[in-house]
Nucleic acid binder design. Structure first.
Lengths: 363, 363
DNA sequence: TTTAGCACTCTCTTTCCCCGAGTGCTAAAG
DNA sequence: CTTTAGCACTCGGGGAAAGAGAGTGCTAAA
């Protein structure tokens, strides 16, 4: 059943007031600020209806109303005005990211820190391969008296290396032969195709290799696995304590412990289909620990077959509009930078995904 | 002025009881548990003396005593029994570290996590070069149609690489020539010796190099700087909330923010001279934020001219004895592993450093 | 359908009071 | 001189009670 226009306006007023103040909202406050030209008594009736229909909740009989998860959902899908980020914010994002993108390894953690600083919520960041990786090329460089350096180029153009200690110096022509064999038989293999049989067959096909092949193969496999699901990084977890809903020590503690478990982080929601951002509100989250928190996550294209996620965890009473805008701007910037493009203009507004998806009102 | 033996015993009883219970300790409790054969009245007199001399404090007139920073210091230097870690703990440490040492890049963060899990306090870990690094060797590998892979071996045997995009494919013999030149003129240079003049001179000495030299030099310099002071990593910050002294939200919040600032972390105390571990108690800390917390930090030898630090931050009421034992065991294990040795035996007991250093009573 | 009025409910804060733990002091005992 | 028993005193913590305030739901009138 569709809500009347007036009810929607009132719901929106409740949500926005609550987001701002974290206090239950009463009929009087709405009557005086929302500019609807209605008395508090009328508003009271409407509030009672909205509560009846599950969009609002009452902490107790004589308190104001607060939005329920359903109420937030409707707000996010239909009611909220889509923020654009301010010029200063855009500037800060561009500045932080531009100088960092040169080096990929620290990028994830820097993105996390930036996001957390900007949104004032705990943020997480991770990156992973969009499709299975393979090794594109092997190189073996001799090292005097200690062994060799293995250099591998992966299918996503990442380069990995390892110093392999052998206790002797392999002859250059042996290394040349080995690398030819390796490039011939172990390139293009995905993680699952890296079978022991395959490795053994390769090993047999070259004489006098002293186990180098198996070391190389082991390292390659390890890197493929590691590159598949990169470490998740969390920044600014302490920001939670600034939020009134986490004044409760036990709650804050549980959430911090939850956020520090990277296995859990990998279970967090992801944008679905071709949408770039997803908002999950309170009980929509699968994890028990997140049932009264919300998550906003954005996907970005990290170039070369890599995709990344940046997300923010906060109370259900978070400013969905501006946080979503910030996240998608960061994601767009990252995507553009990683394919060598310029900074994005602040827009276009992204589509949201989530449960009960509605038709966002673009204003 | 030296304390009498009896006063020391009483002080020790107070400290240990307080560490265990976090409650102010009364004269009666000491009389009944410390086994000194004295009445509570006698103890009361002694407590009054100890308070007078600054080793103990009274939260308020009618409460028991708690140790002051001075009291903890005396306890740490002279009174505390040096724990050895249990066999189970040793086993856990060995198991976690052994499988991880293969790959150095994730090591720091893993060590931090391990330390935090073991001690139940927030832990931090970092590593840095003990003396200035240099590049030991350059290698340039061609990449079809996109540029080249730069591989550098540093003086600490770490290998770094970078994919350099050029937009064209450099001729193999050009790369060979370039790497000869690079190895001839840019190896062995410390960060400060990497002057623009030097780079320019190198650039001039080879024809047709299309700016490759300056890219390589820039990357080399960047890596030298980065390797010098590695990122600091913090794990288990949420553990703080489990401690009774951080029930105060504001205090916990400030501390979490402090710990998430890696610039601050680099200012944390370090073991001095040739001692391997350092304990800083409450106001002995320089940082304002740590004036009522304690830090225990251990140094380890990460092989190849690298040294690492692992530390723990907690309330002054922390179990110095067992945390110090855990840290030094982890540090020893890391040192041994990194030089390819076996697991250490649980010992020898390390020397402590700190202010007002005393002569530790080994029991 | 909207509004004014009003009794009612519930939480939050403040105040007050009592309880208990622990102290410091004094005076007696070893 | 040191140790101990006894005792009055102090202070924080916890719980009950009371009051204030905000907001509701309902009824009746406009």
């Amino acid at each position: 059943m569709e809500l009347t226009d007036r009810k929607k306006k009132i719901l929106r007023a409740v949500v926005e007031s609550y987001i701002e103040t974290a206090e239950p909202v009463g009929s009087k406050a709405i009557a005086s600020t929302a500019g609807l030209g209605l008395s508090s008594a009328t508003i009271r009736n409407e509030l009672a209806d909205l509560t009846e229909e599950g969009y609002l909740e009452q902490p107790h009989t004589s308190a104001g109303r607060i939005p329920s998860a359903k109420g937030y959902r409707l707000y996010v899908n239909e009611l909220m005005e889509r923020h654009r980020i301010s010029a200063e914010e855009a500037e800060e994002i561009n500045a932080s990211l531009k100088q960092r993108l040169q080096r990929l390894d620290g990028l994830i953690s820097d993105v996390g820190k930036l996001t957390s600083r900007l949104t004032n919520f705990p943020a997480y960041a991770m990156a992973s391969a969009a499709s299975p990786l393979t090794v594109k090329r092997f190189e073996l460089l001799p090292v005097e008296d200690s062994g060799l350096i293995l250099v591998m180029m992966l299918s996503n153009n990442a380069v990995k290396n390892k110093l392999v200690k052998l206790g002797f110096s392999p002859a250059p022509d042996l290394l040349a032969k080995l690398s030819t064999v390796l490039n011939a038989s172990l390139t293009g293999l995905t993680e699952t195709e890296f079978t022991p049989e395959k490795i053994e067959a390769t090993e047999r096909s070259v004489a006098g290799e002293n186990g180098i092949v198996s070391v190389v193969a082991g390292f390659a496999l390890e890197e493929l696995i590691k590159a598949r699901d990169s470490e998740a990084y969390v920044a600014g977890a302490g920001k939670l304590l600034g939020q009134p809903e986490y004044q409760d020590l036990g709650k804050a503690h549980r959430m911090l412990e939850y956020l520090s478990d990277s296995r859990e982080l990998k279970q967090l929601p992801q944008p679905e289909g071709d949408s770039k951002i997803k908002i999950t509100i309170g009980p929509e989250n699968l994890a028990e620990e997140l049932k009264d928190s919300s998550v906003i996550v954005a996907r970005y294209d990290a170039g070369d077959n890599m995709q990344g996620l940046i997300g923010v965890v906060g109370p259900t009473r978070m400013d969905y509009s501006s946080v979503a805008a910030q996240l998608s701007y960061i994601a767009d910037t990252l995507s553009n930078l990683s394919r060598g493009g310029a900074m994005p203009l602040p827009g276009p507004l992204p589509r949201l995904t989530g449960e009960n998806e509605g038709d966002p009102t673009e204003k």
